[in-house]
């Protein structure tokens, strides 16, 4: 009785490479006809080498990069056709965790300010903010003592916890995880992976996990897609991944 939460159909993204005047434009096919379905409480992994288009795919789903063609269907609507304002509404339900927690936070803002950004952007009433901040921090294994700190005053693992807290503070349905542990120390990576699994259970999240690390994907994803040169070459259960590794 799984229900499909998000469906990507024939997603395509062409980047026009810079060309001199009067020259015909050249295109680079970063993503070429990618389709996938994400069910509730499911994690799909997308693996591939750098430059295979896996990150672009993730960003197209959130329309951080506008896809050239294709459909992204969420709650019965094709979100690629929504206006910017309507899309911002949807962003409440689809959030993202970035690879490098240090780079994805403004170093001049405190953790409180960083975590409040989604609340302000989506007009959460003032009096609901404080409890939400505290509860979310607790969920990611931190405490309110961290609120007044700056990103550089925390360790890599703690920063990524903040990155995750920022993504789940609005209680989204889907979180796109873009290489969530590859910038972290080995001994901290496993903490973060465990945290992600706990949160999935507790909040009923669905993940799109983008990673180059087969080990990470194998551990946490239910189904796995392999991308190569912009195309999804294989999509299947985790068992198939084992075969890929044999290649």
């Amino acid at each position: 009785m799984t229900t499909t939460l998000l469906e990507v159909r024939n997603l395509e993204k062409k980047f026009s490479s810079k060309s001199a005047w009067f020259q015909s434009k050249k295109y680079v096919h970063a993503v070429n006809g990618v389709s996938l379905e994400l069910n509730e409480r499911e994690t799909i992994g997308i693996v591939g080498e750098s430059g295979c288009g896996k990150s672009t795919t993730g960003r197209c789903v959130l329309r951080l990069i506008e896809p050239t063609s294709g459909e992204v269907i969420f709650q019965g609507k094709d979100i690629t056709t929504l206006s910017k304002r309507e899309m911002n509404e949807i962003r409440k339900d689809i959030q993202m965790v970035f690879q490098d927690p240090m780079a994805s936070m403004n170093p001049k803002l405190t953790i409180r300010e960083i975590l409040s950004e989604p609340l302000i952007a989506h007009k959460v009433p003032q009096k609901e903010r404080e409890p939400l901040l505290n509860e979310t921090l607790r969920l990611v294994g931190l405490s309110e003592n961290h609120l007044e700190r700056y990103p550089h005053e925390m360790s890599g693992g703690q920063r990524q916890r903040i990155g995750i807290a920022r993504a789940i503070i609005l209680r989204p349905k889907i979180v796109v995880l873009d290489e969530p542990v590859s910038a972290l120390d080995v001994s901290v990576q496993s903490q973060i992976l465990n945290l992600l699994q706990d949160l999935q259970e507790e909040l009923g999240l669905s993940y799109i996990l983008i990673s180059h690390d087969l080990g990470v994907v194998e551990h946490i994803a239910h189904r796995v897609g392999v991308m190569y040169l912009g195309e999804m070459v294989e999509m299947g259960g985790k068992e198939q991944l084992f075969l890929i590794r044999k290649h």
Binding site: S190, Q191, L193, G215
Partner: peptide, 20 residues
Amino acid sequence: QSTPHQSKGEKRLKSILGQV
């Protein structure tokens, strides 16, 4: 033990608590 390859089949990874 905390590398994903090593704990195949287990639901949770073993991990080292705390930070470096």
